[in-house]
Amino acid sequence: MSEELKNNPSPEKDKKEEVKAKKPVEGEKPKPAAKKVPPKPQIVVAPKEEPAEDWQKELIKKLGDDVEEAYVSVGEFNIVLKNNENFIANFENIKQHGFDYLADISSVDYLKFEGAPKRFGLSYHLYSMNMNRRLRVKVFLDENEKVPSVMDIWKTADFHEREAYDLMGIVFTGRQGLKRILLPDDWVGHPLRKDVDKVEGREEYTAKLVRKLREED
């Protein structure tokens, strides 16, 4: 639990910290919304527990120092990895551990999220066909921080990484064809970022398009 506290720093630390630390311990499955009939529903935090099962411990041991944090939350096993030179090797390790199926790579902008260590986050959702278990590998990134691509390990990463680049502006190194996927190639900005005005990118794009059309005439 101590590690977890590190990640939830100051602003909320005082009174509410007590509440969320205690709540989850009391009952395995809290039903905050269902039971506490609100005028003002109390906000609690999904519990973070120490990983207990063997395979989880084994995996953490295998990855060694590169694990920043490991916990179980809402029944899901999370590993937070460091973005260092072992990044790809760690993922290969994870794959060898049985997690052969990369379900999803999600990018998150933590700009307005309290308690996040860095601006951006990537969540790799992995599944093991043999063990029938799921694992979430998280990595936090600063602005302009690049992250190695896992496309050599899982080909499926191609579209996911392109999407993360397109909508969130996260740059993946060591791969080819990192270009926009959903938006037009000459779009400006990355719309899923929290500081992006919804309209801004579009206005610029439209202006460019109009210019182009005028030139063609």
């Binding site: 506490k36 609100p38 906000i43 999904a46 809402v74 899901e76 959702h125």
Partner: peptide, 14 residues
């Protein structure tokens, strides 16, 4: 029985 306005705890889930 659930509240009218839904608020979820802080956390993430897949």
């Amino acid at each position: 029985k659930v509240p009218k306005t839904l608020k979820l705890p802080k956390g993430e889930v897949y």
